[in-house]
């Protein structure tokens, strides 16, 4: 897999922490591989919206990657609940059902961005940088191991 210049947290230079939420183990593993190629770290995983809310409270990750269609509680509702309680939360929806109505609903209810599955690593990389804004810094390739 292509390696990207690592994106670190500006405040402490540490790896960006991610919570991956998807009911498919396969999809979670794939997303995990992609964010590791950005120098990110998997803080935790969840297979449904309800677990995502409790895992967010427990882990306080920098970014949540959230699927939409999931059992128990769907992703848009979970994103809304997380953002209501934690306005600083950065939730990026990652779903194959990327129709306009869904995208608008997700953004209106607190998601910061939407990425269509199948995920193109280069697209997610740009979205992550955009969503982190000044809280993220791209390390030089030479400093990748630092």
């Amino acid at each position: 897999m292509e390696q990207f210049a690592p994106v670190k947290r500006s405040k402490d230079g540490q790896a960006v922490q991610y919570l991956i939420v998807d009911d498919s183990v396969f999809a979670r593993k794939n997303l995990g591989r992609i964010i590791e190629s950005f120098g990110g770290q998997i803080a935790g995983e969840a297979g449904d919206g309800l677990t995502a809310i409790s895992e967010y409270d427990r882990l306080k990750p920098d970014i949540v990657l959230m699927d939409i269609t999931m059992p128990q509680m769907e992703g848009i509702e979970a994103a809304e609940k997380i953002v209501q309680k934690n306005p600083e939360a950065r939730v990026v929806m990652v779903s194959s059902v990327g129709y306009q109505e869904n995208i608008v609903a997700a953004l209106q209810r607190g998601a910061r961005h939407f990425v269509q599955k199948p995920v193109k690593p280069e697209v997610l990389y740009e979205v992550i940088k955009y969503v982190l804004g000044e809280d993220g810094a791209v390390a030089s390739a030479a400093g990748a191991g630092a």
């Binding site: 498919s24 183990v25 396969f26 999809a27 593993k29 794939n30 269609t69 779903s95 194959s96 059902v97 990327g98 129709y99 306009q100 109505e101 869904n102 269509q116 599955k117 199948p118």
Partner: peptide
């Protein structure tokens, strides 16, 4: 077990993308 998971996810992605077009 990941092979079966992968087939489900593949179906999900194909159908999700098609549904997005039909919904629009």
């Amino acid at each position: 077990g990941l092979v079966r998971e992968a087939v489900c996810e593949l179906a999900n992605q194909v159908i999700g993308n098609a549904v997005a077009v039909l919904n629009d």
